[in-house]
């Protein structure tokens, strides 16, 4: 029924090319998958195992049960770190969202030089906080920074020493964190605002709704997906925050601004408590995973069901 015109040799060459073509994509993808499996998941497993051992200076495969977790959870500095993370996380997420939305709405009013303003609100995200923290540290310095500026300008009763005040230092981290990330949230909201159907807004204003009412009743409710994204991204950034503290307070004064991330680093690299470092890292991961996995699942699933 079939006649093949080409010679057997050509067919074999062709079939090898075809054989390769079928497997080539997977072959090329394989190294990346392997790297991810080893250096992300393998290392997660490694750290997890380590967190159940007696490792101190060097990894030691001696089973310790949940000892390290008990040590971390009973550690005064960890309590401070978790408490700080709560304060920082809640304020950081909340203020970033409110400020980001406010600036996005302001920018959405047909503003001149919108591009320049956008660039100004977003640049903190493009710079390392190790860099900008240097400036913040100085601005917050009671002797030389804002306090002195206020005094020079004639407000002699102005007092601002939060950065060296154990009770208040964590709030300076919030200020700097908000300064860094709120522009990013602004950008997310602005993109969301630009995606809203203008006809709906025209219809609402023909119905007699005022501009604030249109925002409150019609526009902001439509930004729900942006709120979800911003919430998830900010929360996970809050948990991962590290440089903010290192650059601004070095976890001090004392350990008043300790966060889980600095706790982990200190125990792993300077206090020779690998086991505790690992245990704290695992707890950080689990918290992030609890937030990110459902989010990523819905994000990856979403496009697929709609495009296929």
């Amino acid at each position: 029924m079939m006649t093949i015109a080409s010679s057997p040799r050509q067919t074999r060459a062709a079939s090898f090319a075809d054989w390769l073509e079928v497997r080539l994509p997977k072959l090329v993808l394989a190294p990346s998958v392997l790297i991810t499996l080893v250096f992300v998941y393998g290392f997660i497993a490694w750290t997890s195992i380590l967190s159940f051992t007696r490792s101190k200076t060097i990894p030691k495969m001696e089973w310790a049960g949940v000892l390290q977790y008990a040590k971390v959870l009973g550690h005064e500095r960890w309590h401070v770190a978790v408490h700080n993370l709560m304060i920082f996380g809640v304020l950081y997420v909340l203020i970033c969202m409110v400020l980001g939305l406010l600036i996005a709405i302001l920018l959405d009013q047909r503003i001149r030089h919108e591009g320049t303003l956008r660039a100004i609100f977003l640049y903190p995200m493009a710079l390392s906080f190790i860099v900008t923290g240097t400036a913040w540290k100085w601005i917050l310095n009671p002797g030389l920074g804002l306090e002195k500026l206020a005094h020079d300008w004639g407000w002699s009763s102005f007092h601002f020493d939060w950065i060296i005040n154990e009770q208040m230092a964590i709030y300076t981290i919030v200020i700097a964190g908000v300064w860094q990330a709120s522009g990013f949230v602004m950008a997310m909201f602005l993109a969301g605002l630009r995606g809203i159907d203008q006809d709906v807004i025209k219809a609402a204003s023909m119905d007699g709704a005022s501009l604030p009412l249109i925002y409150w009743r019609i526009i902001i409710p439509q930004l729900k997906p942006v709120f979800v994204s911003a919430l998830v991204i900010l929360t996970h950034l809050a948990i991962k925050s590290y440089e903010l503290v290192v650059a601004l307070t070095g976890a001090g004064p004392g350990y008043a601004t300790e966060l889980p991330s600095t706790f982990m680093y200190a125990h792993t690299f300077t206090r020779n408590q690998l086991g505790m470092g690992a245990a704290s890292a695992v707890m950080m991961l689990l918290t992030v995973a609890a937030i990110m996995v459902p989010y990523l699942y819905s994000e990856v699933r979403g496009p697929r069901t709609s495009s296929h």
């Binding site: 029924m1 079939m2 006649t3 093949i4 062709a14 090319a17 075809d18």
Partner: peptide
């Protein structure tokens, strides 16, 4: 699927 008299099921599109 036969194009002319040749069965093309397993042939690459370019062939």
């Amino acid at each position: 699927i036969l194009i002319g008299n040749q069965r093309v099921n397993d042939l690459h599109p370019s062939k």
